[in-house]
Design a protein around this nucleic acid. Sequence first.
DNA 1: TTGAAAGCGATACCAG
DNA 2: CTGGTATCGCTTTCAA
Lengths: 342, 342
Amino acid sequence: MNLRELSRQLNLSQTTVSRALNGYPEVSEQTRKRVTEAARRYNYSPNARARTLATGRTMSIGHIIPMSKQNELVNMVFTDFIAGAGLVYAQQGYDMTLRIVADDGKLAAYRSFAERGAVDGVIVQSPTRDDPRIDYLAALDIPFLVHGRASEITKPYPWLDVNSKRAIETATRHLIELGHRRIGLVNGHEVMDFASRRREGYCAALTAAGLVVDEALTRSGDMSEPNGYEAARDLLAQQDAPTAFVASSIVMALGVKRAVEDRGLRIGRDVSVVCFDDDISFLPNAGETPLFTAMRSSVRAAGQRCATLLIERIKAPQAPPPTELWEAELIRGTSSGPGPFA
Amino acid sequence: MNLRELSRQLNLSQTTVSRALNGYPEVSEQTRKRVTEAARRYNYSPNARARTLATGRTMSIGHIIPMSKQNELVNMVFTDFIAGAGLVYAQQGYDMTLRIVADDGKLAAYRSFAERGAVDGVIVQSPTRDDPRIDYLAALDIPFLVHGRASEITKPYPWLDVNSKRAIETATRHLIELGHRRIGLVNGHEVMDFASRRREGYCAALTAAGLVVDEALTRSGDMSEPNGYEAARDLLAQQDAPTAFVASSIVMALGVKRAVEDRGLRIGRDVSVVCFDDDISFLPNAGETPLFTAMRSSVRAAGQRCATLLIERIKAPQAPPPTELWEAELIRGTSSGPGPFA
DNA sequence: TTGAAAGCGATACCAG
DNA sequence: CTGGTATCGCTTTCAA
């Protein structure tokens, strides 16, 4: 049953039926009732494809998820984020259009979404410091929202980010206050914006305490457990090894932990480890610590907020780009499980 | 730039341009070249919304993810499944349309996908024994594929399932061969098809060994760690407590483990635990054991295969519904971590 | 308050 | 091999 048939049954024009069903005020209540009843009786439901063409809106938001060939696994950061965003979309009548792509296909995927008008807006996740997607999307003139920031991009664009720098700064200061003087940094790739901000926080805390930043105590690389392990192992093997670590993610912290224990040291006694993360990827050996729970719900909250902001932007594209900086609470590990802790 | 403008630039009809771009054979190579070049030059890309209406295909597949109010977390089973499916979709030119809904909104969500023609096909996950979605979708005449089965539904429908019964049967037999005579079953809700099959496997193994099924040794409920804990705790508190457990998922096995240890018993010495799972939900205290890895990639594989089957079905709707039963390998835990093991 | 008709931007049939 | 034209099913002016 489509609109034409329905309107014929009712002896009304398509226009009127459409208006009645879409809640336009100029329809008499009586007609509206007739129409809605008939619609229900004939089980009419408007064709989404046609509506989409007629209105120019798809009522769906694009998300692109990179899946690197090597790890073969989708970074689960995206899971909770998507769950949060999806809740908001559902509530607002949007669907999520998801595409899984290889890392090198990301840009093309955004382009395809935007140019073909397949979605009404897109979310950009995990930007690099100079992420090309941002200019690209701005030029294509499609509403978007970045989860994170790209510090090298100066033109205003809409983003929501968590204050990585401050969080790591606080964490590092915490270690300094515990008496540590040689503190290792096990960071992600610093082309990633958040990773470079985390280094800034680390450096800021050291400097503020009158300590010098020793490059030999910092490492950056894949945010994986094995890489955290290797980094910490190397750092611990140095003479004058660090007595504490700042890890840039839980996953890496777990690698650090393993390296520490491999040397026969004990975390919390011989070595302190703190970490910050809104990357709640699958965690080898991570327990359901309060930390972990907090991470998950924090990412979900970010997803919700990003979705909300994006939808607002879709509805009011002229408004100045929203920017929102979240202050992360420093969560001290009180875990009784094998999670990372201070 | 749209088709009409492009065709005017070229002094060709829309028809010809469309044909040239879509690789129809009846276009002369020369024209095709002119067209493709112009398309590139003008950065033309066909409007997805219009194409969707014209062809009647959306080139997207619907997935519905229930998010129960209570646990507030999306069951991560879906993550790897979706990753696998998404890979196939991307490869075949499909997008995934995702909707997160409350448990009680599932049916309506499928309906909305189907009736409005918003997607070309849908995936049904975690069916109950008599899942209403199946008849519903069949009546709506939209291609679908069930991951799992609904044993009470007799009409043929397309599905892919893993042989839960056999897996649990094997696992239970394994325990019997170890000498256990009182074996507890910690199962999911048995309205879920897979859970009822798992019970069947459990019973079959016992019966085959000449043992009687003691209902007092079986529990079913939420597939959560706390529920696994409670179930096992209760069973262990009985006189004549079980000396071994079959858990229906890793998560529950972890609860069982906790209950066992709470009683001062040791797994592998005092009590044996086996589990089967293609539910790779977030695991409190689970390690990246080979078991776990295997689960994840198994679910991903299932996602891939389901996607493939569904797309085939979309392309050949008349073909008899495909059905595929996968035999699960029984993975013995050789984990050195805190995972569940035999 | 209602209706006629013009889009939306492609695809696809039927002629030539 | 190319073109004219109807079509997909709705929304949205514009007129009445």
